[in-house]
Design a protein around this nucleic acid. Sequence first.
RNA 1: GUGGCUGUAGCUCAGGUAGGUAGAGCACCGCGUUGUGGUCGCGGCGGUCGCGGGUUCAAAUCCCGUCAGCCACCCCA
Length: 421
Amino acid sequence: MAKSKFQALRGMRDIMSPDAERQRALVDAFAHLAGLSGYGHIMSPIVEDLGVFLRVGESTDVVTKEMYDFEDKDGTRIAMRPELTASVVRAFVQHNPPSLPWKVWYEGPQFRHERPQAGRYRQFSQVGIEVLGSDDPAVDVEVIALGWRFYQALGMNEVTLLLNSLGDDTCRPQYFDALETYFRDRASELSEKSQETLEKNPLRVLDSKRAEDQAIIADAPLMVDFLTDETAEHFAAVRSGLESLGIPYEISPRLVRGLDYYTRTTFEFASTALENAQNAVGGGGRYDGLAESLGGKPTPGIGFALGVDRILLACDAEGVFPAPDLTPDVFVLDVTGTEAATVIADELRMAGISVERAYDGRNMRSQMKVANRVEAPWAVIIGETELAEGNVTLRDMHGDSGQTLVSRDELVATLSTKVAN
RNA sequence: GUGGCUGUAGCUCAGGUAGGUAGAGCACCGCGUUGUGGUCGCGGCGGUCGCGGGUUCAAAUCCCGUCAGCCACCCCA
């Protein structure tokens, strides 16, 4: 490593070309799909009042331990968003959109102060959607399908959809109690860590990966056995909808999610191509009580967030969705030392032809080497004799058609045709 | 947050377990071709061996600390 006085903060990194272009292409693909389904783009602030997030996850590490929060210059307690659902719901409550359901998609960085690992960064990026104002199971199906179709659009095949229902206000408390009783009776057999988790939220004990907890978790009561008729019906409608779309899913009765606000339908997308523990490439669910807890009218909501960085890692593992090709159409060389290269490059670019060129008055051999390195299929050579006669030399860098003399007036037209092919 | 592994040129890595003052391949630059690339040949640039301290006549090499990355736990996207 060359010595440099500063480096990016822990868990944060510079995403450079061509990875940055690849990430943008991913977001473009997502925006396209979301647009096809009638979702509008929302760009919300990166920082919010701390309270926006406190309401949504008081028993979660995301909110209690990992949040980047600080006091603003006027004393307000603010936080860099650790997730986007809360921000979007805050925006929904604030603007009270007249026509429901309100459907939005988003993309952007989020911050969590965790110990970094591959696929887990302190600043990470997600794409996602949220729908507020309808609890029609068709909405659940549309949301899940959009996530699924997105992975497909990227070429990913090794994604598993895990599905569960966490119940609603009427049935969840009963399940919660049953689970708490069950775990408390066996607390001594649980790992120390799980005993702590039990105090905060018995549901989350189900998430433990510690070997000593597995036997107890395996026999724990299941939410599905506690669902009210109405909730069970909703869940059945969601499953049936997914089946009619041919979207495969796996019922995962112990799937719980990281944030407290989830109700009824919850789901996670896991990549089987990722071998490490960071194999969840997306997740989401219903949060029918969130709008109300942020001061709005009771409004059902559902959404998901997909981890951009992890998706890209999974794409690498599957060998799909490569970075976009940045090869220029044309490379302009100049040995006259005039402004001709500058002018011609500009003309071509304005005609929609991508152009790279040589700088610093290097000799022709060097310029050709650069043209070769960037793999431009065409080279425009500006020399003394050509320039004097109002011409330019056009060289085919790939094929064997050699090079021809082209009048400067016809260069743009000639190259436009060639590049189009 | 806990434990472990790793950190040498832009990249991938050797050297470290017998301390003696840094190497390879690729990449980059130049020459062979005073206006023509890809191959080949020759030459060159490039590192205070993550950082700080200690032991020693001498440290990339041993010791301590620290920072960063990775792995498991945790958490979750």
